[in-house]
Simulated scan of single mutants.
Amino acid sequence: MKRITKIISAILAVLVVTAVFAGCSSSNDNSTANGFRTLDEIKSSGTINIGVFSDKNPFGYVDENGEYQGYDVYFANRLGEDLGVKVNFVSTEAANRIEYLQTGKVDLILANFTVTDERKEEVDFALPYMSVSLGVVSPKSNTITSLDNWNESDSMIVISGTTAETYLTKNYPNIKLQKYDAYAQAKTALENGSGAAWANDNTEVIAYANQNSDFVVGIPELGSADTIAPAVTKGNDTLLNWINDEIKALGKENFFHKDYEATLLDTYGKEYENQLVIEGGELASSTNDTAK
């Protein structure tokens, strides 16, 4: 009888402990019930987690001192400063930007994220801060100037999860795609001749060609112009609204032109500044006669 009593007591103890942990878990889940941290929760924590590239110079990269640098990083640091919190940079790749938001690994993505209708279904985009098109870079010895007469034995290098991959799959299904997760891998493949050309944001391929004299951007604009914008988890309205207000406020001080001049000027020069920069979230304000 005593043995049965002990067994019952042990079972009851396990049930009590399980209930306590379940209660704690429920309490924690309620604070992030929607899968994201609200603006107030971010402020209370003292840290905002921002996803950026670590290998895409000059937009997001890690320098020789192990510090994040670049156009997106410059913007991210200002957001942290105005929020009054520390920025925790999280290295991301193109293919996992949406995943990192949906799993709560980051609060915000600032990684050259092109706005598309398909992505709008999965994340919420803030106002844009940059204009971009697709471009194609190839060796000077075999410059690709058109995709209409593509050699079917050749392959096009793309980064998985980018608009270049989506555009080519839809509009040029005959072109074989050679996909990589990291920008460094794509550049190595191009240099080794693994692919005939590399399609990506024109900002990226122009920068690459400027730094590598054996390559040229034979197609500077492919498809229609798009915009780059911050992205938050779907439904995170408090953070989204704050970022939109911040972008409008920063536009009044020409912040994004200052960002360009601090991080992109050496790569692109003055001729691309007004073509690429969007101030205050207003696309029309960034266009002029230099944008062709």
Rank of each mutant, 00 (worst) to 15 (best):
M1H: 15
K2L: 14
I4W: 15
L12R: 04
A13I: 15
V17A: 12
V20M: 13
A22R: 10
S26C: 11
N30C: 08
A33R: 00
G35K: 00
G35C: 00
G35M: 00
F36K: 00
R37H: 04
D40M: 01
D40A: 02
I42L: 03
K43Q: 06
S45I: 00
G46I: 05
T47Y: 06
G51M: 05
V52F: 08
S54I: 09
S54L: 08
S54M: 06
S54F: 13
D55Y: 12
N57H: 10
N57Q: 07
P58E: 01
P58D: 01
G60M: 03
V62Q: 02
E64L: 12
E64T: 12
E67F: 05
E67A: 04
Y74E: 03
Y74T: 02
F75E: 06
A76G: 07
R78G: 04
L79I: 15
L79R: 09
G80L: 06
E81K: 12
V85W: 03
V85G: 04
K86W: 01
K86T: 06
F89K: 01
A95F: 14
A95E: 14
N96H: 09
I98D: 00
Q102F: 00
T103V: 08
G104D: 00
K105G: 01
K105N: 02
L108R: 01
I109H: 02
L110D: 06
N112W: 09
N112L: 13
T114S: 12
T116Q: 13
E118Y: 13
E118T: 14
E121I: 07
V123M: 05
F125E: 03
P128E: 02
Y129L: 14
M130V: 09
V136D: 03
V137S: 07
P139Q: 08
P139L: 08
N142T: 08
T145M: 03
N149G: 05
S155F: 07
M156P: 04
G161M: 08
G161H: 10
E165P: 08
T166V: 10
L168N: 10
L168K: 07
N171R: 09
Y172N: 04
P173T: 04
P173R: 05
N174L: 10
K176W: 10
K176L: 10
A182K: 14
A184V: 15
A186G: 07
A186T: 08
T188M: 04
G193Q: 12
S194R: 15
N200P: 05
D201I: 12
T203G: 15
I206V: 13
A207F: 14
F215M: 11
L222W: 01
S224W: 11
A225L: 12
I228V: 11
I228Q: 04
P230V: 01
V232N: 00
V232Q: 00
T233S: 02
T233I: 02
D237H: 09
D237G: 06
L240F: 03
N241M: 07
W242N: 00
I243N: 05
D245G: 15
D245C: 07
K248D: 03
L250F: 07
H257Q: 13
K258F: 06
D259A: 15
D259F: 08
Y260I: 01
E261V: 09
E261A: 12
A262W: 10
T263F: 11
K270D: 14
Y272S: 05
V277L: 09
I278C: 09
G281L: 13
A284C: 06
S286T: 12
S286R: 12
N288R: 10
N288A: 10
D289L: 14
T290V: 07
